[in-house]
Simulated assay, not measured.
Amino acid sequence: MAGNFWQSSHQQQWILDKQDLIRDRQYDLTGLTEDEYQKILSFFSGIIQVLGEQLKLRQQVIATATVYFKRFYAKNSLKCIDPLLLAPTCVFLASKVEEFGVISNSRLITTCQNVIKSKFSYAYGQQEFPYRTNHILECEFYLLENLDCCLIVYQPYRPLLVFIQDIGQDDQLLTYAWKIVNDSLRTDVSLLYAPFQIAIACLNIACVMLGKENILKSWFAELNTDMDKIQEIVRTVINLYEMWKSYDEKKEIQALLMKMPKPKPAPQR
């Protein structure tokens, strides 16, 4: 992950314009509201998170898999590939790119089956995970093509650690900010902003949550960055938290999945 973010494909090709992102989603937004669309992407981001945890992956790998997932649907409709197939495919690819080691095909499929049945039965009932190794391998090639083989993803975790050191080691602040960075993966911020900007915004939210905003006011004031963008990220993450207060995923997601534009029927075993 060493290298220069400003010269990377992440910065040059994958920091997208918000208006372009909305325009590219128009097909899906003919049948779904923006709110419903975000809830569906958030649900599958949750599947990636749980799948990664069950496979004992580092958070960096899970985050990269989630960004791959977001990038694919930034350019494609939900009907192109079933998100239930793309989610484990992103995990499979990210584990190789982040040098975690290749997950065995049988372990990946078995874990998918167990996760869907035990953790997401509220969405899928007793439905079996319908995909096998050959589907994931085929999907991986399609994913690589759509990512234009831009596989190095810079995450907010590293700049967050640097900022915490600069502030003065504060484990409580780091823990809160780290969790908020994880939550930010459920939004579009990874597609729209630089990782260091996301790290600053998540630090800002963590400071407010812990009542430390006045203590660190001068630190934030001295930052040489676009504070308007930082505030945009803060608003996006706060909106996510507000949505979670009134949204019961276990009761609502099944109906949303029924409304989602469908790919071709799942292959028969």
Rank of each mutant, 00 (worst) to 15 (best):
F44E: 03
P130F: 03
V67F: 00
V61Y: 08
N105C: 11
C80L: 14
E140S: 07
D20W: 15
A255I: 11
F196V: 13
I136H: 04
I48M: 08
L78M: 14
V237Y: 07
I205M: 01
T110Q: 15
N76Q: 12
D171M: 13
Q172C: 13
S95Q: 00
R269E: 11
D28T: 08
Y73W: 05
V189N: 04
M209F: 15
E252N: 09
E249S: 08
L151Y: 01
L210V: 10
V189H: 06
D170H: 07
L192S: 03
S8Q: 02
L16Y: 09
Q49A: 14
S9E: 10
D248M: 07
L173I: 02
I180Y: 09
H10Q: 10
E53A: 15
F43P: 08
R107W: 04
D20C: 12
K75D: 03
L85E: 01
Q113N: 15
R107G: 00
E99A: 04
I205V: 08
M260G: 01
L21T: 00
D183I: 12
S8T: 00
L174H: 09
K245N: 13
K217L: 11
I180L: 14
V50Q: 14
P159I: 09
V208Y: 08
I230Y: 07
A201L: 01
K250M: 10
M209W: 12
A2R: 13
L108R: 08
K75A: 06
V181R: 04
I205E: 00
Q54D: 15
L257G: 02
I103Y: 07
V181C: 14
F163G: 06
K259F: 01
E232Y: 09
Y193Q: 01
N105P: 02
V189Y: 11
V61E: 01
I253P: 01
I215N: 03
S246W: 07
S190Q: 13
F141L: 15
A94Y: 03
L160H: 08
I40G: 06
T133K: 12
T236W: 09
I81Q: 06
L21G: 02
Y73H: 05
R23Q: 14
Q13N: 14
D24N: 15
N182V: 09
L84I: 10
K18P: 10
I167S: 06
A63T: 11
L57G: 04
K18I: 12
I47S: 02
T30I: 07
Q127E: 13
Q7V: 10
K179W: 09
E36A: 04
H10P: 00
L174M: 10
N214C: 09
L203Q: 02
I47K: 05
F44Y: 14
R25A: 11
V153I: 13
V189M: 07
A194E: 11
V181F: 05
E99P: 01
V189P: 05
G3D: 05
S77W: 04
C112H: 10
I22M: 12
E53C: 15
Q254A: 15
E53Y: 15
I233W: 10
V153E: 02
I116W: 02
F129N: 02
A65Q: 09
M243F: 11
N105D: 13
Q26K: 15
H135A: 11
Q12W: 05
L78D: 02
L256Q: 00
S118P: 00
L29H: 06
L173D: 00
H135P: 05
S42H: 04
I47Y: 13
N114S: 15
T33W: 06
L41P: 07
F92A: 00
P265I: 09
L143R: 07
D24W: 13
V50M: 12
I40W: 06
R25S: 11
